[in-house]
């Protein structure tokens, strides 16, 4: 298994070839290939257990790649800067860290920029001195996002970023995400929210493995996408029964 970092002039920031990844000695991804374009908003979709989080964690280096190759393309000589906001974090109740302390440690945010950093994600000022264990799920997600945005990543991975956020903040968070995409950050979002995919995706990676490789009206991706403004639906695991080039549709389960 190889993970290669090299500067190059491709349209993709990450390319994965024939990845097989295990989690706890159990194979989660088998022979999966996909690519993540630069300066785009890519959604990773799939049923529960299809390997969405596993794929993202292996790209981030949190899980080893058992087989296959992954290429990371940076436009400069420096390594890619990754940003990561998981769906949830269980902060230990034995660490009484405040919001401002977390920003200082995780992203080296100076004291005079803390409020401004939190304002970007609509984090309530009244909770600035709260401890991490006192925050709600949505407040935690906003805090984690604020820290990652301050670090100016080249590629930002978000796992269900709106799952704990209230309706009034949802639009704001989406605007923030689109804003940083326009600044040249590649965004990858794991989601089950098909409306979000329909509305904003430039690129979709589907990890479902139940499919029939023929053009069919029974396609979960096709049926779930109300707008035809998606440039690519990329099927990560190819249909072994067919040699169709391009992309495969999958059976509606």
């Amino acid at each position: 298994m190889t993970r290669i970092e090299n500067p190059g002039f491709t349209d993709n920031i990450i390319e994965c070839q024939n990845l097989t990844i295990y989690r706890d000695f159990h194979e989660v991804l088998h022979n999966a290939s996909c690519s993540i374009p630069k300066d785009s908003l890519t959604f990773i979709v799939g049923e529960n257990g299809s390997g969405k989080t596993t794929l993202v964690q292996s790209i981030l280096g949190l899980l080893p790649i058992n087989e296959g190759e992954m290429e990371l393309h940076s436009d400069t000589e420096k390594d890619l800067i990754f940003g990561y906001v998981p769906q949830s974090v269980n902060f230990s109740k034995h660490v009484q860290m405040t919001v401002s302390e977390y920003l200082k440690y995780s992203a080296s945010v100076p004291s005079d920029l803390i409020e401004e950093t939190l304002n970007i994600v609509d984090f309530p000022e009244t909770h600035l001195h709260n401890r991490l264990t006192e925050l709600s799920g949505g407040q935690t997600q906003k805090l984690l996002l604020a820290a990652e945005l301050f670090r100016s990543p080249d590629i930002l991975f978000l796992d269900e970023p709106l799952s704990n956020v209230d309706n009034s903040s949802e639009k704001h968070i989406i605007d923030v995400i689109l804003g940083i995409k326009n600044q040249g950050v590649s965004i990858v979002i794991i989601t089950h929210d098909w409306q979000m995919v329909s509305s904003y995706a430039d690129h979709v990676i589907c990890l479902n493995t139940n499919f029939l490789c023929e053009l069919s009206s029974n396609c979960i991706c096709k049926n779930s996408l109300s707008k035809i403004n998606i440039k690519n639906i990329q099927k990560a695991t190819p249909d072994p029964q067919s040699s169709h080039p391009g992309y495969c549709y999958i059976e509606n389960i």
């Binding site: 964690q57 981030l60 990561y84 998981p86 902060f91 230990s92 660490v95 995780s106």
Partner: peptide, 10 residues
Amino acid sequence: STVHPDLARV
């Protein structure tokens, strides 16, 4: 690594 081990590895 104590507060957010995954981010520390990233």
